[in-house]
Design a protein around this nucleic acid. Structure first.
Lengths: 201, 201
DNA sequence: TGCAATTCGCTTTTTGTTCGCTATAATTTC
DNA sequence: GAAATTATAGCGAACAAAAAGCGAATTGCA
């Protein structure tokens, strides 16, 4: 995954700061160091660098940035080289050497767990029996996200989440199934789905 | 694990104190040294540093702090705990075991790479645009496996593989698309699909 | 019994996150 | 190649959450 000029500048700044101080800078300090006026900009840069696997940090944790030293990139089986793209009828694109993919690219540093899926309630979303959903442990969800929800303290299901006033609609992705419509007080969100992993035997 | 500015200051103080005196400071001495008025604050700092593995101590024991020399650090893994199963309308099954899942469980120690999927030729198999297929580099395939195949040296596609006499049928999983039927000599297998990884934004 | 460590509830400060919005560059699609 | 989409880069403000702090009461070692 290629890095932009600006991203490299920020990475350099981070390295220098950590070397000098022994701890990582706050977003505020990064902004000052890079001449940026909005923390949102810093936030986006840091997120992008994290996504590219160039640094590591914990969500919502102050000064938790860890610059990953070049060469430490794991090439174990937990990380696969990304060889390009494939499409029906088109050749595989030129393999860009440094790209790769791993579970980390999906779940980041969030608090996550996996669930094996049974049943077809999300079939139209291409999540089928036997798949593993990768779930971030969270108690809230945004409109339209796929969530793991506990309904009336008994049923746990995998559905799309829609908040409608005091009610919550849990929408299956299967025309043959009915949405669940219940008062918000009867639903507790267990997590939101960040990704899917499927294994063929 | 990253450290905050205050935590670094405390760690520096501890190091200096031990170097000067040969024994570790009491919480009271730490409070005085750092300009803190409450021992609760000291306690929290020490606990946090201990949690981060930067120092070691015995619970409730005076002056038992040991600063750990920077060395052994462990990075979080690409392995997720498997919390059970989920199904429409049924509770999550008991997560008794210490099961987990990672990319390694899908690809093993095989020679693998990943491809980003474009197009809908495998939609009915629930592989859709944007998914990553995890592919084992191999020249051969068995009946019915999903393969990455190079046809007539130009087109690379993702299809199910069927050998029929001297011909090979590459079958898309999409009713709107036609199977490709070509002489075996015109097809070269690039690999077989072991799994799928999907990431939601 | 006495000193040091622990725990509790609570406040303040520091730091991160998110939203809406603008602009430009790069990429895909048609 | 033009048009549409997606990615990067940026802003300010409202908001949320850790980190850091306090005093007092309590517990535990020795």
């Amino acid at each position: 995954m290629a890095i932009t000029r600006r991203q490299k500048e920020i990475l350099d700044f981070l390295n220098a700061f950590v070397t000098r101080n022994g701890y990582s800078p706050s977003f505020e300090e990064i902004a000052r160091g890079m001449g940026l006026k909005s923390l949102a900009t810093v936030h986006k840069h840091i997120s992008n660098l994290e996504k590219k696997g160039l640094l590591d940090r914990v969500h919502n944790r102050s000064r938790s940035i860890d610059v990953i030293p070049p060469g430490t990139r794991t090439r174990s089986s937990d990380r696969l080289p990304l060889a390009g793209r494939i499409a029906a009828g088109h050749p595989v694109e030129a393999p860009e050497t440094y790209e790769s993919i791993s579970l980390h690219d999906v779940v980041g540093n969030r608090d996550c767990f996996a669930l094996e899926v049974r049943g077809d309630s999300m079939r139209d979303e291409h999540i089928v029996s036997g798949d593993y959903v990768l779930v971030e442990r969270t108690r809230t969800a945004r409109q339209g996200e796929i969530v793991v929800a506990l309904v009336r303290g008994t049923e746990t299901t995998l559905k799309r989440y829609y908040s409608e006033g005091n009610m919550i609609r849990l929408q299956p992705a299967n025309l043959e199934m009915e949405p669940i419509l219940v008062p918000a007080t009867h639903v507790s969100i267990q997590g939101r789905v960040l990704g899917v992993l499927r294994k063929y035997r």
